[in-house]
Design a protein around this nucleic acid. Structure first.
Lengths: 262, 262
DNA sequence: CATATATGATGAATATCACTCAGTCATTAA
DNA sequence: TTAATGACTGAGTGATATTCATCATATATG
């Protein structure tokens, strides 16, 4: 847990140039993978192997040789693709976030109301992190503190992920379904913080039932929606305020009226 | 990060027998420390050294030899007192929790209302964990997962600590200051989860001002108190509803009145 | 007081890692 | 065919947690 290398990774750079051989006039399309494809699939294999080890045994107990064995490469090869164990773990996390964001987006899109969207997001998040709880350890500890976290892939992916929540909340406020209370970052922290802490509690319970998950989700959404449980569709703050103003004005007129008459 | 030893710690057992020499008739009280006192003070020195290293450099970068040097003992000696690095870290955490519980209890006792108690607890927790953020890493990762966490000192101390919050909440509900909503464990998770997540956000902000801490605390307490914030801020849905009812009733009376008069 | 025994303490030795690097192999270019 | 480039390898290195044979001191016992 120290020596951070400086050497740039000789690893295959990102996308582009999927075109095989442009001059494929006479030759068959050649089913053999190109060098670039082979490199890519090897990188995928390494990440998959690391993912498996990390999620089942945790960061500390996962060894590089174990990953190498699972991925079918030599130990040294790992360092051609990732500069160190932390970087590899970050790559795994980035994949996790990418998938999480994808499923979150499509799920939210299917929901009609803000309440439904929030409920879906909460349950989705909670169930996902329960499944891959070991990955979350990474975020809290090493991976987040050593070398550059901001600017890393995980950081960017994480931003994209929480943006899904932000959009839902802002949409809800805009449509008057949620009262516009605290700053957005506070709501975000309450949302994700509560869920991640609940995860620990749920994991410690001997039999954490579906009901427990549902209870956490319901309570959290209730709080974020403005606490006005009232079931069904609570009036928005905006609407209530307008109603008060109307009633108040009416009362005032009546008072003046009766004052005249009296 | 593996070999967990089985050998029982030959470490000095807990309290009792502070009495030096009971037959202190003729002899002076003997200022020389007893064996037990020497052992105790050495244990304290080790924990203090470990605390310093852990909080400044984090778990991974803290080495046992570093701790031994700081504590003024040989490396092997550490293992007479703590079975391994994890156990030592847990001991440090236990001390942290003990102090935290102490200050929390006395602080809460000084507050009059439930709201004040909650606000104090939230601010106290947030400021404490910001100060010793490195210790919290431990909880999320290794220390909590390896070997027996339940039944450990940290676990018990943690239970005691969160009990302070539980008491405040239950007291508030009992006195009608808080609506009795979700299960207690859910409220607890929301409280501590939000704060610990906020900590990360605050630490990433370049200049996390007092105002940010205050904002998080205020919002969280507002939510837990049932939204009945009343706070300067916009009225809660619940209060607005009540206000509408009051105004509505008044208007009704006036209408009847003017109807009679008319 | 002298000796025996238990309790503490030590640090060199061991086992595991993460990480490096000199060299091999394979594919493409000339 | 040969040269050059890129990909890969695994024995080697240094760091670190943990063990253990041994020593030191204090207490108990005669």
């Amino acid at each position: 847990m120290k020596r951070e290398p400086k050497r740039a990774m000789p690893r295959a750079k990102s996308a582009e140039k999927n075109a095989r051989s442009a001059k494929a006039g006479t030759r068959k399309p050649s089913l053999a993978p190109t060098r670039r494809e082979r490199v890519q699939s090897k990188e995928d294999a390494i990440i998959a192997a690391a993912h498996k080890s990390l999620t089942t045994r945790g960061f500390a107990k996962t060894t590089m040789s174990e990953i190498a064995r699972k991925a079918g490469v030599a130990e040294g090869t790992l360092y051609l693709y990732f500069s160190n164990k932390n970087a590899l773990a970050r790559a795994v996390l980035a994949v996790f976030y990418k998938r999480l964001t994808q499923t979150a987006k499509t799920g939210v899109a299917k929901c009609a109301t803000t309440r439904e969207k929030l409920e879906f997001l909460a349950r989705h998040h909670l169930e996902s992190i329960i499944g891959e709880r070991r990955l979350l350890e990474l975020i809290a500890s090493d991976v987040r503190n050593t070398d550059a976290y901001e600017g890393s892939d995980v950081y960017k992916m994480n931003r994209e992920y929480v943006a899904v929540f932000d959009d839902v909340m802002r949409g809800g406020v805009w449509r008057g379904e949620i009262e516009d209370g605290a700053a957005q970052w506070i709501k975000r922290d309450i949302f994700f913080g509560s869920l991640e802490y609940s995860m620990r509690t749920l994991l410690m319970k001997k039999r954490s039932s579906k009901k427990d998950v549902a209870a956490v989700v319901a309570e959290l959404v209730k709080l974020l929606m403005g606490g006005a449980g009232v079931r069904t569709e609570p009036m928005s703050n905006r609407d209530l305020t307008k109603a008060v103003e109307r009633v108040d004005a009416a009362a005032l007129r009546l008072e003046r009226l009766s004052a005249v008459k009296m």
